[in-house]
Design a protein around this nucleic acid. Sequence first.
DNA 1: ACGAGGATGCTCT
DNA 2: GAGCATCCTCGTC
Length: 184
Amino acid sequence: MTRSLQALLGGGVLEAARGLLGRRLRSDIGGEVCEVILTEVEAYAGADDPASHAYRGKTPRTRTMFGPPGHLYVYRSYGIHWCMNVVTGPEGQASAVLLRGGFPVAGEAVMAQRRGRADHLTDGPGKLCQALGVTGANDGAPLSEGPVRLHDADPITGVVIATSRVGVGKAADRLWRFVLTKGV
DNA sequence: ACGAGGATGCTCT
DNA sequence: GAGCATCCTCGTC
């Protein structure tokens, strides 16, 4: 019996990030069901993390990160793309896990249509949101019962590699990007 | 396989 | 007005 998803997300952000790897993420949006297994995530520790959007306190954009764990924090990146996070830790503590990639296990045709190409469907945070149909409209949605859900089941296991976060200049010494690779 | 450069618009100072 | 938690295309090797 694995630790429940709810308990995992309510705890420390690094443990939550590692614990999200290998889990199923499903979207039911626009009448289409798509699902991936998460393979790449990054941890952002709110007030303790200069690289976090929430580092300088609560703003209109970051309000959902200060809310309860287990909800989506979706923001627009570089004016073009959507990126999604899973809010973690106790309410009031703005930590979150950025979902950067996965591999498709359902709805590949829909993902390809949304992406406008057949390859590189979910290997990047903006691509993952586009493939799953996630937009700012999903910001704040609970992952337990909304259009985007995390399965509370045993995750796929493998070798986890830790690196510095992508596109982040601040706190580059923190190896808070976690990638799930195939086990031997 | 890899790297450089441009597109694009919201957020906060 | 500066700075982005990015992606795509087109050039090299």
